[in-house]
Design a protein around this nucleic acid. Structure first.
Lengths: 211, 211, 211, 211
DNA sequence: CATGAATGAGTATTCATTCAT
DNA sequence: CATGAATGAATACTCATTCAT
């Protein structure tokens, strides 16, 4: 039962690992993936050596954060599907809750590819599961008539990937609502039966975006 | 007449300055704002010393790139307004053309504020002019009935800021069209008369987002 | 009876100690005296803590390895003397067998004195005993007429110290024999009645090299 | 004329490069190849950055030292051949002078292969040239009748490689002469027409040891 | 003015050793 | 006692910036 390299840790080691992961997640979110490792160690309340014992280098740490985020995002997605009355509401809730997804996206899809994550089968697995859930909801929403019919899962993922990037907080007065309004506008774009020119190309399916 | 610190340069110095600016723009676009200065110097075909003679430090270089981008974006915006038959089409063209704007946004509004640009009156001036143009177009489009009425310039700027970030290019097959489809979907969100719940909060005006 | 810090150990502790010693000897031979301590612990199949319980620091471990090697080399030397028909053959056999001596030399006499061993009376005792045996054999060989007369024990020790360093293995074809040929050539130098210029200085005696 | 990356340096840069090389050679000789880089920089009287500008990493520095040593050793060998009346004397002088060769050997042939030098064509070229000179002298000495006939260049190189390692300086009184005596003994082994059992295997030729 | 050399502060990473479980 | 986690000092290497040529 203690085979899993993570669960099979001594209680204190386990706690440290979690703290490091949490600290890293925090810092990655505010400073991007090249925060000083010491900063992370300090935030986690451990020595730099401890951090490196758990994660042999920066890449390993990022991988771990990414996995963790995908895991949590997947759980959130499933909860949304299970608890919301309509597929549309599940989509919306998913998008709103997804702080986790946001970080994942920032780390993994940041357009200047500062860090290319090595292939990680476990992470890919999680990713696939996540897309699968999205796929289901998308089609359900289209069946409901709440999501326009000329798009597919890949399109939705694209838009999500965009939205999930932090909307820039400019001035404090408008900050809070600005993000909400952005989401609402874009959701309107998804919901509306195409009111203008037809979309270019073909719907982008789940297969199109996943390996 | 040699008072302007930029125009009053010897021809070769001027050429150097331009090459540096171009190289920096290029590199910033692919690697973000912390590319090694030497990289930029090399790409510009000048020595590192020359770069530092022109731009006393990294911040100054970024400032200059930002100004330059705002300038070009402003010109593009004005051209779009002047040449397109409708305000809506001006908006769309502006968004499509705006490679310049993209970079500006990436540099200045990147959500983890890795680099906070010092206040720069000239750049702010350009920014104001740019927003002014946008403001005009937005209201014109609303008057045309092509842009929904429950939003204002700030909302549009927000959505642009989002869109303008490079849509992640996943698989080559879908890459090209994905970005186009994203834009189209989001434009539909702007164009549509609100088809669902009303937007939260008040329209965000040009003043709300300006310094 | 449990006074001896080494023999008075519980059986398992004793076994651990031996395994550590063996692992250390192995690693020192291939990587020199600064292999990571963890490497040694791993090779010994014990935890790093256990290693440090037995040997308070790296130096102590090296000391122990050195003692152990001297002990074994001494035993080998005595066996050679006892079993070979002539003193010369004892010398030759000693040199060929002495894997143990080789390591000892590498650890203790390595010319860039990366590690200066603290004085260790027990080890010195062993060393003296070893030199004593060598001294006897050298003089016996000279009496036999098989070893040239213008040298003494210290000279032989010097040459041994040299020879005992691993002859570099260059190409596989010649590797095996190269070492043998080297030894043979040098033995010829010892055996030969000086065929050329007289040696500089005086014979180096056992006392000259002993502490 | 300034094409050579080394000779085409500014005077001061050139001086620094030389000082770094000298300092490195010095330190490598006393501490082996993992002296702290800062130590070397300090000894050279330059900043650490300067060291790294000239030699991108430790390996590059070692390579450069090795080349330099081979170069000097080659020059010494040629001088010995040119100036000594007999091939035998050239061999002897070569061996005595070769401080440079000593370091080279220590760096490149150290038996615990702590650092495996990457293949370096220039260095190999020098090495070949060096062996070629040795080859000539060896055969000349055999023609003279001063070197035993049952060996070849490779054998001599092997013995040299051994001898060239610093003979351990034990006690100051004997230190100076010990090394000389060692050499003399071993030279006697080379000179003597085999007075005992024939050497095992075949003569090791220049080709056998060189790539 | 242009150049590229020199500098050193900032970071990543390793490993000997101590200490809680 | 055995274990392996935690610690931090030591060291390699990078890059922004200054300065001599």
């Amino acid at each position: 039962m203690t085979a899993d390299p993570v669960t099979g840790l001594r209680a204190d080691a386990r706690r440290n690992r979690d703290q490091i992961l949490a600290a890293a997640k925090q810092w990655f979110a505010v400073q991007g993936p090249d925060v000083p490792m010491e900063e992370i160690a300090r935030a986690a309340g451990v020595g730099i050596g401890t951090l490196y014992r758990r994660f042999p280098d920066r890449e390993a740490l990022i991988q771990a954060v990414a996995r963790d985020s995908f895991e949590k995002a997947l759980a959130e997605a499933r909860a949304a599907v299970a608890e919301e009355p309509t597929a549309w509401e599940a989509l919306v809730r998913f998008l709103h809750q997804s702080q986790e997804l946001r970080l994942t996206m920032q780390l993994a899809m940041t357009s200047p590819p500062r860090i290319v994550l090595r292939d990680d089968e476990e992470r890919n697995e999680l990713r696939r599961a996540l897309i699968e859930v999205l796929d289901t909801v998308v089609h359900a929403a289209q069946a409901e008539g709440t999501l326009r019919g000329d798009i597919d899962t890949g399109d939705v993922a694209m838009v999500f990937a965009l939205l999930v990037r932090q909307v820039p907080k400019t001035h404090d007065t408008v900050a809070g609502l600005a993000a909400e309004r952005c989401m609402a506008l874009i959701l309107d774009g998804l919901r509306a039966p195409s009111s203008g020119a037809p979309l270019p190309g073909q719907p982008i399916t789940a297969e199109d975006i996943g390996p």
